[in-house]
Design a protein around this nucleic acid. Structure first.
Lengths: 202, 202
DNA sequence: TAATAGTATTAACATTGTTCAATATATTTG
DNA sequence: CAAATATATTGAACAATGTTAATACTATTA
């Protein structure tokens, strides 16, 4: 019965690959059961032999995008000094990734998770993503500075919330209106949040 | 030709009223051209004589919801002392309104504005809404304390971004998982942001 | 090789946004 | 006031989409 599992995984992989290609290429607009199936080289009905519905398929891609995003970020911030500065760099790269791939932003933050099932785990994955990316850096800071852990978790949350908020306004409401202005706002906001580390040292 | 304008405005009003009723009642899920028209007592095709498409109609409701929201908030914060404390209260009431009416949240933050046209004005209205609600209080603070206006605009933005981010995560990603916990997080975050006023006094 | 189980596909349905020609209504004019 | 004209309203129809169910196909096994 192992063959069956392998084949099933392979089939799921084909559809997921197709979904990811469409998402990153044509965008969320263009993706629907028929286009995914066409890209995968199957009929649209075949999809339903492997996924409960199209939402399940689409949300299964979250993992892969997170890995891709994490890899891109790691590369980008390599040369930044660890700790506070690298956290800033990670947050900026995190935001930049979603600006580069608007449909991934939509998938992560906008698209409604359908029925129950894998609901909470996926939602949690998304919520803790930025924190996970910064985990080493926070550990580094805790080791080298003497800061109340309450303050740290407030700052972590603030970074996460401000990032999501800025992305939401920029992607969905074109605010600020230009990319340059957006970048400046990111810089300002992230610096403001991280500067609390100084005043929080006890 | 004035009669014609009056009649047209009246018709628009019927459809907008129907849309608002459905939005606040059944939610965004249940609203579509046919249900709106039925609620208004017309055929779905009639709608297209007054609005370019359904998106235009739906986004025209933003104004009314903002007024309703502003009225609710004003009532709620009346007894709070002006200045810093009232800003906190306004921000909390602002968030609470969207939690109470999830489809208004969707309309304001999630729903894609269609083609160009009234795009930017509506987006701007939404972005500056919280700032507008707090305008008097900020004026009060500037009068009574000596604070760099740069710092104030950073704090304003932060309040706006964190509010949007918290709402986004709570409404779309169930994070935090419980309402009580959500309220506590709001409190924590808003206090943290507003406490910067103290350190910013020059 | 024939029966069976599993897989893939086509056909079909429901829902939605939108357009358009036909119908009903209102307004103007002789 | 009645005919002619303009306007408003409407149901029919189309396209796109998600989903299901019956049918065709393929591979396994007795």
């Amino acid at each position: 019965m192992v063959n069956k599992d392998i084949q099933e995984q392979r089939m799921k992989g084909y559809f997921m690959q197709a979904t990811k290609e469409l998402l990153k290429g044509e965008g969320l607009r263009s993706i629907n059961v028929r286009s995914i199936a066409a890209q995968a080289g199957y009929s649209y009905a075949t999809l339903y032999n492997y996924f409960r519905d199209v939402k399940e398929l689409v949300f299964l891609c979250v993992n892969d995008f997170q890995e891709e995003c994490a890899a891109e970020i790691r590369l980008k911030v390599e040369k930044t000094p660890p700790g506070q500065e690298r956290i800033k760099a990670i947050a900026k790269a995190y935001i930049a990734y979603f600006v580069q791939y608007p449909s991934v932003f939509n998938l992560f933050f906008i698209e409604k998770l359908g029925d129950i099932g894998q609901k909470q785990p996926t939602a949690n994955l998304i919520f803790t993503f930025l924190d996970g990316l910064c985990a080493d850096e926070w550990a580094y800071i805790i080791q080298n500075k003497n800061i109340d852990s309450k303050d740290i978790s407030t700052i972590k949350l603030q970074l996460n919330y401000v990032s999501a908020g800025m992305l939401l306004y920029y992607m969905n409401r074109i605010q600020p209106a230009g990319y340059q202005e957006f970048i400046e706002t990111i810089d300002l906001q992230i610096n403001a949040i991280m500067s609390r580390l100084e005043t929080a040292i006890s």
